Simulated scan of single mutants.
Amino acid sequence: MFLTENGDEMWDSESGTPLADMVRDAADAQSYRQLADRAVDPRTGYRASHSTLWKIGHGEQVKISPQLVRAVAAAVGLPARDAQVAAAQQYIGLMAGDPIGASTAEATVVMAHVPGLTAGDMPRVQDLLTKWAAGERGAEKGQ
């Protein structure tokens, strides 16, 4: 369990089913077999079956892997990062984003964190990223 600076418990919030929602939304316009025709991981060539996509869309247990997540992204026509973020949230309860607002036009910061985390909950991370962005030596070593 993780506590915020206010003492709130973070693991108790529902993480939802964003990967299942992503697959179900795509299946509203076509069959799971049609989705499976496009469910090919561009890196490895792994193909997700229509039954695996159906299981994901209906919230059933599947053996999750990077190849499967990239195949799901290809099937639904979204960037792999979107499917990776959704899978992290659904399967392990982590959110991915920039809760401290450190992203700039030149660099995007993505951190895996428990739901509800704010900049106030991680001042050391914010300080480290600020130093790194300013180009201070030693920031990458936490100095």
Rank of each mutant, 00 (worst) to 15 (best):
D121R: 03
E140P: 15
M95L: 09
R81P: 02
T44F: 04
A20H: 01
A36C: 08
L19Q: 00
H50M: 13
E106F: 06
W54S: 00
V85K: 12
K141Q: 15
R24N: 11
V109C: 08
S31Y: 08
Q143V: 07
Q90P: 05
A88V: 05
E5N: 10
W11G: 05
V85E: 10
D98F: 03
L78W: 05
A36N: 04
G77Y: 08
Q143E: 13
V62M: 10
W11V: 04
V110K: 12
G77E: 06
A29W: 06
A86W: 00
G59Y: 06
L129K: 04
D127H: 12
G93F: 06
A139K: 14
H50T: 02
A88Q: 07
L128C: 07
G93Y: 04
E136W: 07
K55R: 14
A29Q: 11
A71Q: 01
G93H: 06
L19M: 07
P99S: 10
R137P: 14
A83Q: 08
A75T: 02
A36L: 13
G93M: 03
S51E: 02
M1H: 10
A75C: 04
G135T: 13
A83H: 06
S31N: 07
P18E: 03
V85N: 04
P79N: 07
T104R: 12
G7V: 13
P99I: 02
D28E: 13
L129M: 14
G120N: 14
A133N: 13
I100V: 06
S15T: 11
D12V: 02
G138A: 13
E5R: 15
R70H: 10
T118Q: 08
M122Q: 10
T4R: 15
T44R: 04
V114Q: 12
V85A: 10
T130P: 09
E14M: 03
D28T: 00
W54R: 04
A73Q: 04
V109D: 00
P123R: 15
A20M: 03
K55Q: 02
V114D: 03
Q30L: 01
D82I: 03
E140M: 15
R33S: 02
P18I: 00
S51I: 01
K63S: 10
Q34C: 01
M95K: 11
A83T: 07
Q84E: 09
K131T: 05
M95G: 02
L53Q: 00
R47M: 12
P123K: 14
Q30A: 06
L117Q: 04
L35N: 04
M122C: 14
P18C: 04
S15H: 13
G116H: 11
S51C: 01
G57Q: 05
M122T: 12
L129W: 15
A96M: 05
E136I: 15
G93D: 12
A36K: 05
A39K: 00
F2M: 11
E5C: 07
E14Q: 09
P66E: 07
D98N: 11
L3A: 10
T4E: 10
W54N: 01
P42F: 07
D25H: 00
L68G: 06
G57K: 01
A96N: 01
G135W: 12
G59M: 07
Q90I: 04
R43D: 14
Y46M: 14
G138H: 15
A105V: 08
R33Y: 04
